[in-house]
């Protein structure tokens, strides 16, 4: 097992409404290792975004343990400097692409993070150029952010984090406001970062198709962990996901429906390719059998 980056145990968090405390997270326990690609799946209001906001100190935990990149976020003597140090390690991309870009020029925005860290000028220049190249936005370095598409803006936001060299990136519903093309751009970008640079990626989403691409899926419902496993393990139980207000891949539904009618099918396909393989094998077997 690789080094643990995020450790949560019996984590509780609640918000105040009309002088009442409404619990959002009700005892979350999990460990995420360095270099993992994890999707946190849940419907709106399930607590998945709250969990994400705890991870880099935007919200404070109420009870339980939470250690992220060596910083104990549940500690009573947590200082601003600790959170500052944590945020160098754990970057976050938010939902609305318009509300996280600060500068009027793309490369100036990418430079914002390293400038805050006090990195020397020449080094910032190098990091900004590298970061823009990594997300495929070098040609837009001199553009104004408001003229970019949603997907491009999110890629600039990602470049802004890369330039700070974090070891983990959290995507808090970063694809929810994008069109399918933009969504693809963002997913492909963070998958590349995970694969090539070993950056730990945590994507918070309610799109089942996105979660299915991760190495590990954690389903959160009503502030608790409902399931935690590989996509194949998670989608093997469609009823549980539907009950949690989520979708199931159509191929998975089809296989389960066929099985219910007595067709013998081995395996849990998620993608159409896997599903086609499985069906072809079964039909082939039937011909010979």
């Amino acid at each position: 097992m690789a080094e643990i980056l995020i450790h949560a145990k019996e984590l509780w968090c609640s918000y105040e409404e009309d002088d009442r405390r409404v619990p959002v997270l009700r005892g979350i326990s999990l460990d995420i290792a360095r270099g993992e690609y994890v999707a946190i799946l849940g419907h709106n209001g399930s607590g998945k975004s709250t969990f994400a906001k705890l991870l880099n100190g935007i919200l404070e935990p109420e009870a339980g343990e939470l250690v992220v990149a060596g910083t104990n976020l549940a500690s009573p003597d947590l200082t601003d400097d600790d959170i500052y140090a944590l945020r160098r390690e754990v970057g976050m991309v938010f939902q609305n692409p318009d509300n996280q870009l600060v500068a009027t020029i793309v490369e100036e925005d990418v430079a914002f993070g390293p400038e805050n860290l006090g990195v020397p000028s020449a080094e910032i220049r190098r990091r900004v150029d590298d970061a823009l190249a990594t997300v495929g936005m070098s040609d837009y370095a001199g553009h104004e952010p408001h003229r970019l598409s949603g997907g491009q803006k999110q890629r600039v936001a990602i470049a802004g984090l890369i330039a700070m060299m974090p070891s983990c990136m959290i995507f808090d519903e970063s694809t929810a406001m994008l069109d399918p093309a933009g969504r693809r751009e963002v997913i492909e970008t963070f998958e590349k970062l995970n694969r090539e640079q070993g950056i730990t990626v945590l994507t918070i989403t309610h799109y089942m198709n996105e979660a299915a691409r991760a190495d590990r899926v954690i389903v959160i419902d009503d502030g608790k962990i409902l399931a935690d496993g590989t996509p194949h393990e998670i989608f093997a139980d469609p009823g549980r996901l539907i009950a949690a207000g989520l979708d199931v891949p159509q191929c998975t539904s089809l296989i389960h429906a066929l099985r219910a009618e007595g067709v013998a099918l081995e395996g849990e396909p998620i993608t159409p390719e896997e599903c086609a393989d499985l069906l072809c094998r079964a039909l082939e077997g039937k011909k010979h059998g």
Binding site: Q250, C251, C280
Partner: peptide, 9 residues
């Protein structure tokens, strides 16, 4: 997705 599957088959 189901249409993609049909095209593949």
């Amino acid at each position: 997705q189901i249409t993609r599957l049909a095209l593949l088959l």
